[in-house]
Simulated scan of single mutants.
Amino acid sequence: MTAPAKPRKGARRAAIAVVSLIVLAVIAYLIYLNVPDHRTALLVDTSRSRVDFGAVAASVGSVARNAGERDAVSLRRFGGECGAADNTAELVGSGTGRGGEIDSAARGLSAAGRPTLQSGVLAAIDDFSGLYPFRGLKRNRIVVVTSHGTDGCAGDQRAVMKAVRERVSAAGLTLECRFVGFQVPDGQRDELRDLAGACGAPEPRFVATPQELDVVLRELVVPDLGRAEPVELPEPEPVEEHEFMVALMTGWGVKVTGAPVTCRAATGERDPERLQCRFKVAEGASVRLTAKVTGPDPNPLRGNNPEYRPTNTPYWYGCDEGPESRTCTVTMNRERLSKAKAKSGGTPSTSMAACVTTKDPAAGALAMACAALTGSR
Results as ranks from 00 to 15, higher is better:
15 A>C: 01
16 I>V: 13
16 I>Y: 12
16 I>K: 10
17 A>N: 01
17 A>V: 05
17 A>C: 06
17 A>R: 11
17 A>E: 01
18 V>Q: 07
18 V>P: 01
18 V>T: 11
20 S>W: 06
21 L>P: 00
21 L>F: 12
21 L>I: 10
22 I>R: 02
22 I>H: 00
24 L>C: 05
24 L>G: 11
25 A>F: 07
25 A>D: 02
27 I>L: 15
27 I>V: 15
27 I>D: 06
28 A>D: 09
29 Y>R: 12
29 Y>F: 11
31 I>H: 10
31 I>D: 12
31 I>L: 14
32 Y>S: 13
33 L>P: 01
33 L>F: 09
34 N>S: 13
34 N>P: 00
34 N>T: 11
37 D>Y: 09
37 D>G: 15
37 D>N: 15
38 H>V: 15
39 R>Y: 10
39 R>W: 08
39 R>M: 04
41 A>S: 13
41 A>M: 13
42 L>D: 05
43 L>G: 05
43 L>W: 08
44 V>Q: 01
44 V>K: 03
45 D>T: 08
45 D>K: 04
45 D>Q: 12
46 T>I: 14
48 R>S: 15
48 R>P: 00
48 R>C: 00
51 V>Q: 09
51 V>Y: 03
52 D>L: 06
53 F>S: 04
54 G>Y: 07
54 G>Q: 11
55 A>Y: 10
55 A>K: 07
55 A>N: 10
56 V>P: 05
57 A>M: 01
57 A>S: 14
58 A>C: 00
58 A>Q: 15
58 A>D: 14
58 A>T: 13
58 A>I: 01
58 A>G: 05
59 S>R: 07
61 G>V: 10
